[in-house]
Design a binder for these strands. Structure first.
Lengths: 352, 352
DNA sequence: GTGAAAGCGCTAACAG
DNA sequence: CTGTTAGCGCTTTCAC
């Protein structure tokens, strides 16, 4: 059982030891049908005994397939994206593939750099959340790709998967309406980003459909961080004209910030002010009150992305846009307005 | 500029177009010193124009180095491990390497399976958090490895990096003592796991050093989930002999559960009961009150692990055990005991 | 400085 | 069913 040069054994070693040719050994090792049962058995035994491990590099070089998939997301440490990555990784494992993971930090240069690494590694394909600007690299990436996230619609010729924002916003607004909140304040992200534009447009359409003037909804903006949400909430409460009784935040982190701000301001959530988030991050469950939110199908985005990518690689399908439904998570940050505990100047509730 | 067969161009295409031999092209492309400046320039230009991208597979096959690193953690979707992964990935990127990420779900079979994938992919090395039991595969993995996490000490011959639990527990207990909590209740993980044994031993030593009988500390156990923490807290409060005024949980999730339980029970945190966590997950910041905790250096574990691995690969160093310090994060779940708000039967505070 | 040639470990025709 | 023969694209002696 001595290994020839204390290097890991190659198929040649196995073939020699089994007294067959390279090809027969190869066939046995890859479960090809045309091998004598005796030969196969012997080769497999020898391989086992030698601790033979197929060299995937050589295999890939020859076959043109590496079994590796690239994943480029903004930030692996962000719970939403970590969840997406986990989904992609599970599905990859199920298909016998491996996942190369990169974080772009919303930075176009880094994204380009990672794409280059993927191309050099000759991955079979990639799942990418393109950064907002200057993603022209995406077009000439020259490898099968699936886009995830909202910016996907700029690349009509590629498959993509995202969450159904329209449906998500709709269930959120409907649920708010059931609580009597017809004109929630909006906590939006930075201007000019596709995600914000989309969110706002959906709210707009929804209001119009319900006969509400969208312009009457108070709007503040943040940058998707807890701190920005906290500050935005403070600004909202400070508005002289129209103190706010309900807030719909464009993401959970800002919603959490809003809840913190309310506590600091001595206002009760949800009795005084209701807060609704959007994302579904686990942290929302531990806030006080628990954050009610519209959850995006993060993990499913990862698995579905991988499924689409496989199709793209196999050439089974040209391209397709998949939208996955969001679902509502009720946890306690929503209530009917309760005037009792409010200071008088805040009792002009316009949604009662 | 026409690509020969619409396949991505190889070094042969470039060499031909530049009117030099394969070897010269290769030298130019890899910044070798012995190339005429003129040749180098032309090759580089042609390569650029053709959009040539070095085939890493072929390169690796020849050189024996892939520039790929494997990372096997329990769960990529767990915020702590996601943070570790991010650290490893950053450091990998800095060194021009790529990261193959796998989740084992604390399952030995899956771990073995992933290790095999790594070996077949001929990664240069791997960073692994071994599952508790049956990790004999680890020994005969036959590739440079760095272990992360508490179970590392079972493999003395390998480099490893973990958090300095002893130091972390010490600062936690010291801070508790400053608040007058000398005999906190302990919320531990499942029995017989190394992590628990270690945590408990450190607390034990610390108490002895302070002249406190470790046996007097109330103990409950959970399985590191929020729900188990909640239930454990309820059990603690229910203890007739010695109602609890302070809890030190072995991880943040259970601590969060404890805070939720207190709220349900109508007890105030921290005035009635103080809660201290261990981990430093971001979610702790959004609880009410914010969870005070001992934070493990998650990201640093990733970066340091990668640094150690590089040494192991280069053969610079045989093996080394690195312990990274924890740090204290004060957020509001700790206070001096306040008898005022307590029901009479809970006023027998033994730490006052 | 440059080119010719060998070969990393494997798969894929093509004959037998 | 099995062996022989070419390479996959690149690095790396070794001559010139």
């Amino acid at each position: 059982m001595a290994d020839r040069k204390s290097r890991s054994p190659t198929i040649i070693d196995i073939a020699a030891a089994a007294g067959v040719s390279k090809s027969t050994a190869a066939r046995a090792l890859s479960n090809a049908p045309n091998v004598a049962e005796a030969s196969r058995k012997r080769v497999l035994e020898i391989a086992e005994a030698y601790g033979y491990e197929r060299n995937h590099l050589a295999r890939s070089l020859r076959s043109g397939r590496t079994g590796m998939i690239g994943l480029v997301i903004p930030d692996l440490a962000n719970p939403f994206w970590a969840e997406v990555a986990r989904g992609a990784q599970d599905e990859a494992a199920r298909r016998g593939a491996s996942l190369l993971v990169f974080s772009s930090d919303w930075n176009a240069d880094r994204e380009a750099q990672h794409l280059r690494a993927l191309r050099q590694a000759r991955v079979d394909g990639a799942i990418i959340n393109p950064v907002a600007d200057g993603s022209d690299d995406i077009h000439r990436a020259g490898l099968p790709m699936v886009l995830i996230g909202s910016s996907a619609e700029r690349f009509a010729q590629l498959s993509s998967v995202g969450s159904n924002i329209a449906q998500g916003v709709a269930i959120g607004l409907n649920r708010l309406a059931e609580f009597g909140h017809l004109q929630p304040a909006l906590l939006l992200g930075p201007p000019n980003r596709l995600a914000r534009v989309r969110f706002q447009r959906v709210v707009h359409d929804h209001c119009v459909a319900r006969g509400i003037d969208p312009a009457t909804l108070p709007v503040e903006e943040g940058d998707y961080t807890v701190e920005s949400g906290r500050r935005a909430m403070i600004r909202l409460i400070g508005r002289a004209e129209q103190p706010v009784r309900c807030v719909f935040a464009a993401n959970d982190l800002m919603a959490l910030g809003a809840i913190l701000a309310l506590r600091d301001l001595g206002l009760r959530c949800p009795q005084d002010v209701s807060v609704l988030g959007f994302d579904g991050i686990p942290a929302g469950a531990y806030a006080a009150p628990g954050l009610t939110t519209v959850a995006k199908p993060a993990r499913a985005i990862g698995t579905e992305g991988m499924a689409l990518l496989t199709e793209a690689i196999d050439g089974t399908l040209d391209h397709r846009r998949v939208l996955l439904d969001c679902h509502f998570v009720e946890r306690g940050s929503l209530a009917r307005p309760d005037h009792a505990g409010l200071p008088p100047e805040m009792r002009n509730d316009h949604a009662a």
